[in-house]
Amino acid sequence: MKLPKPRKRGSSYDITVTFQGKRYYCTRDTPKECEQWAALKLLELKSGKVQENLGVKQHYPFKQLFEQYYQEHGRDKKSKTWIYGQLKTFDDKFGTLAQMSIHEITPKHLTAWRNKRSTEVSPNTVLKELSLYSAIFSYAQKELFLIHDNPWMGISKPKKPKARNRRITDTEINLILSAFGYSEGKVLVLPQHYVAWAFLFALETAMRRGEILSIRREHVFEKHVHLPMTKNGDERDVPLTKKARELLKLIPLENEKIIPQSENAFRLMWERTKNKIGLSDLHFHDTRHEAITRLVNQQKLPVEILAKMTGHKTIKVLVNTYYNPDVGDIADMLD
């Protein structure tokens, strides 16, 4: 069978091979790498077909399936950075299970892995990882037709923990600003100033960290910020308070990207600094809880209007997860 020619796509190349009516695709840095992949893929497919006809299931390691899933699906998802991180640490996380054939992996194997993993990370992290690995096996089942059943569907999930109810005090805000060497109204000069600025901006807008990091100059308007892509896949316009508009004026005009740091650099700076001052239990996402609670308590925003601002499609999630008034706040409203 004649190999197809690689096609240039931006700074990389891609190639597609067809076998028995199915197409297989990959992207590589050079044409030669594409051709090598295509030759090996065709050899693998032909070998697998012969074995299948003889009733023999081809050895297909879990990690190899993950790599193929990433190349064909994972790299195009919004969470591609996180998925790539999972792939990089896969061997350490799964041990011998990483090289076990997907035909041999059973719910019993996965239950043992889940129990071990539950002693290492939070239930939320386990749930997030279970969702990814189950999707990978669904891909093998429904798109590659390598397996008949998804063993991840045969294990029980950890109980989802209660939503966080973490408020942020004025004292903690001052501690954060001081740790980053920043004070409100100050022009942004150093990288750490942008982290402190983003913290204040999040408290005013209830925007997620990733949303703030994605803002470009062209997205900023007089009274709102336009987000062309959000976590739920939709665009959103976020109205700005007077303080939020003042904060935006502090960003240097030459900044095409409002926050110049990469997501990883920003995250590391935030984590190291807040841990250093004894606020390890504070998550950046807690600013979203705090901002939403303040918008209700202080701005008296109706919940249906608030949902438009925050991007929540389900009012129940907004009210039960993100609105965290204390009993004193509610008593004040009654009066």
Rank of each mutant, 00 (worst) to 15 (best):
L250H: 02
T293Q: 13
G311S: 10
F94R: 07
L268N: 15
V327C: 07
K63C: 03
P239R: 15
R167L: 02
G85W: 10
N124C: 10
N124F: 12
N53Q: 15
I251L: 08
G328Y: 11
E72P: 03
F199P: 12
T273I: 13
Y322I: 05
G311H: 05
I292V: 09
M309C: 08
L301K: 08
E143S: 15
Y13T: 00
R28G: 03
Q86V: 10
K257L: 06
A140K: 00
D76M: 07
D237I: 01
S156F: 11
W270G: 01
D329Q: 07
N165H: 12
W37G: 02
T27K: 04
E246L: 05
N124V: 12
I277S: 09
K249A: 09
L213K: 01
E35A: 12
H289I: 05
L40Q: 14
E211G: 08
Q192T: 12
V317E: 04
P158F: 00
Y133K: 03
E235Q: 10
Y182Q: 06
A39R: 14
E129N: 09
H219A: 03
L188F: 03
K78V: 06
T111F: 12
I259K: 04
T125E: 12
R75K: 15
L144I: 00
A198E: 11
L301R: 02
P151Y: 01
H73W: 13
N150S: 04
R288E: 00
I212W: 05
I305G: 02
E172D: 10
R23N: 10
G95F: 02
E104A: 05
I277L: 09
K223I: 08
W113I: 09
Y182V: 11
L54Q: 13
F199L: 03
V296P: 07
T321Y: 09
N174T: 14
K162C: 09
R216Q: 11
T287E: 02
L110S: 05
N150I: 05
N124H: 11
P6W: 03
